[in-house]
Simulated scan of single mutants.
Amino acid sequence: MRLTQNFYELMTKTSQLLLLAIMATLMVACGGDDDSDGDDVVPSCDDFSASAVRTAADEIQLTITEGSAPYAYTVTYQGGATQDGETSQSPVTIALTETAEAQSITVTDETDCSTTAELAACALTATAVASDGEITLTVAEGTAPYTYVITYAGGSTQKGQFTDESTTITADQSEDATLVLTDADFCTTETTVSADDLTSLLDTRDGQRYQIVTIGTQTWLAENFNYDYTGSLCYDDDAANCEEYGKLYTWAMATADDFAPEGWHVPSKEERDIFIIEIGDDAVSKLREGGSSKFEAKFAGVENNGKYILMGTDAYFWTSTISDDPTRAWLFRLDEEGTIIEANSTLTSAYLSLRLIKN
């Protein structure tokens, strides 16, 4: 009888221990713990992550791995600006609200797990140079193809695409303009050009700019040419005179293949004659500085046989046409006290001023 009772007690204790073990196993499997306060176990944030890529110049795509929705996010821009939002989806497209480059996005889930995704840095840089109605865009870094949008001061826009490192665009307007360039990685950069630059000629060889003017069907420099061609002179050998009046050249210099910038040339006798007809009567008054033609002629004088003469009274300009005498070439002359354009010739060895005409 006593043996039976002991066996019964042993079996009872064993059953109790087995029941406790089963309950403990169930608590672990269900995420509970054996603390007396009944708090839940905090889930791990180790697997919570996010990635972000640009999908357009003004949007990014956010992809979230693991975590519990909804997700709060903060986009951080270059310069410190931020943009907050919330989503329950992944992936999700986020429209960017700032013009600065987006650098990172920090995501926080419902359980306060947090992760930050860095956006690849943009390397796109470009320059824009305007000259004679054209804009040359040159990319220093970036991924082709490139798309540009030009917005003019008057509100009109001009768009295009190119794949080389540089492209030249014929401007639709002669106005101040802002250019936004976007590359294949949806990186953007912005630059500007001025109306003054669009309506002047840049000689890329030395960086000098010249105002230009259209008279009839011809487009001329509205300043005396001042390129430092080998052998050219400043009146009285004074550099200040070159700055004010331009340089003086022989006919051989003026007609050399490498003399004029691309797209321009020394006018021929025939082009000079068209110019004279277009100007008409009272030519000197129209062509001098402040005259109605905007040609802005300056009486720069000449150098002949080693002597500088006629500054302040005469303006002589070469043409590219040799006369019947091979030692002489055609020119046109303005006398400060005269009224007409004189069409005559002089020795090719003389040093005269130059006005280029557009091809």
Rank of each mutant, 00 (worst) to 15 (best):
M1R: 12
F7S: 14
T14P: 04
I22Y: 03
A24C: 12
T25Y: 03
D33N: 15
D34Q: 09
D37L: 12
D40S: 11
P43L: 15
P43A: 14
D46I: 05
D47E: 14
A52K: 02
A57E: 12
D58K: 09
D58Q: 08
D58V: 02
I60Q: 03
I64W: 07
T65Y: 03
E66D: 13
S68E: 10
S68F: 05
T76K: 15
Q89M: 08
P91N: 08
V92T: 15
L96Q: 06
T97P: 02
E98G: 05
T99H: 10
A102W: 00
Q103T: 13
S104C: 07
T106H: 02
T116C: 08
C122P: 04
A123Q: 13
A128P: 09
V129D: 06
S131A: 04
D132L: 10
T136K: 11
T136C: 05
T138H: 07
V139Y: 02
E141V: 07
A144P: 06
Y152F: 14
K159V: 14
G160Y: 12
Q161Y: 02
A177C: 10
T188S: 14
T189F: 06
E190W: 01
S200H: 08
T204I: 05
R209H: 11
L221P: 08
E223D: 14
N226T: 10
D236C: 01
N241T: 11
N241V: 00
C242R: 11
Y249A: 01
A252L: 07
A252E: 13
A254I: 04
F259D: 01
E262Q: 15
I274V: 15
I274F: 05
I276C: 05
I279D: 04
D281H: 06
D282W: 09
D282G: 14
A283H: 08
V284S: 08
K286A: 14
R288V: 04
E289Q: 13
E289W: 02
S293N: 12
K294N: 14
K298H: 03
V302Y: 10
K307S: 11
Y308W: 14
G312D: 04
Y316D: 00
A343K: 01
S345F: 00
A350L: 00
S353R: 03
L354F: 03
